[in-house]
Simulated assay, not measured.
Amino acid sequence: MADNSNNGMNGKTPNDSKIEMTELVLPNDTNLLGNLLGGRLMHWMDIAGALVASRHSNKTVATVALDSLDFRHPVRMGELVILKAKMTWAGRTSMEVAINVYAENLKNGNVILTNKAYMTFVALGADCKPSLVPPLIPETDDEKNEYIEAEKRRDDRLKKRSKE
């Protein structure tokens, strides 16, 4: 893991900032097939991710990147959408958040993973310029592995930008 403790801030664990957000899929949220609109889901995911990043940094954040978004299963009208978001990595001013989305059928209680995404946010100071964030301190083996994988995604993202 990279050492980003040079910013002089006390680190935080992924559990310090994780959130769970729940939405009910209403008719206005669906397409003609009665399935949740992808754009509506992305909006909710952006909110969940920004809440985690803001909670970690104690700052306003802006969305920088969406590395991947997998649509694995449709979410239908009348189902609950449960978004679970957690920090996976923090650099000097940017942070990655993993967001897992579940659909819960209220009639039978079945819960299924429908989507997963990694989003990157940058913390903004009062001048609306990038601002330092606390280091992330992964505690579990899973969190340590996620941190390493997040660094790889960041490196890939930076390589791609340098080619453009």
Rank of each mutant, 00 (worst) to 15 (best):
Y147M: 01
W44I: 07
F71L: 08
K18G: 03
R154H: 14
D141V: 13
K163Q: 12
G125E: 10
G109T: 13
M42N: 05
M119W: 10
D155N: 13
D156T: 04
N15F: 09
T93L: 08
S162G: 00
T93C: 05
K159G: 00
A123F: 10
A65Y: 04
T30F: 01
N10H: 12
N7Q: 11
D3T: 10
A2G: 02
E20N: 09
L32A: 14
N145T: 07
L83R: 03
R72P: 00
T13H: 03
N31W: 12
T140F: 10
E149W: 00
L83K: 03
A126T: 13
D29Y: 13
M42F: 15
R72E: 11
D141N: 14
T63W: 13
D127A: 07
L41D: 03
A48C: 12
N145W: 00
E143R: 02
M77D: 08
M42V: 09
T120L: 05
L83Y: 06
G125H: 12
E20S: 15
G91C: 07
V75Q: 08
V61S: 06
G125P: 04
N15S: 12
E139Y: 14
D46M: 10
G49V: 11
D127T: 05
E96C: 05
T63F: 04
T93H: 07
E146T: 00
R76G: 12
V122W: 08
N7F: 04
E151A: 00
L36G: 02
K144M: 13
C128G: 01
E104A: 01
T140K: 12
L80H: 03
A126K: 15
I137A: 06
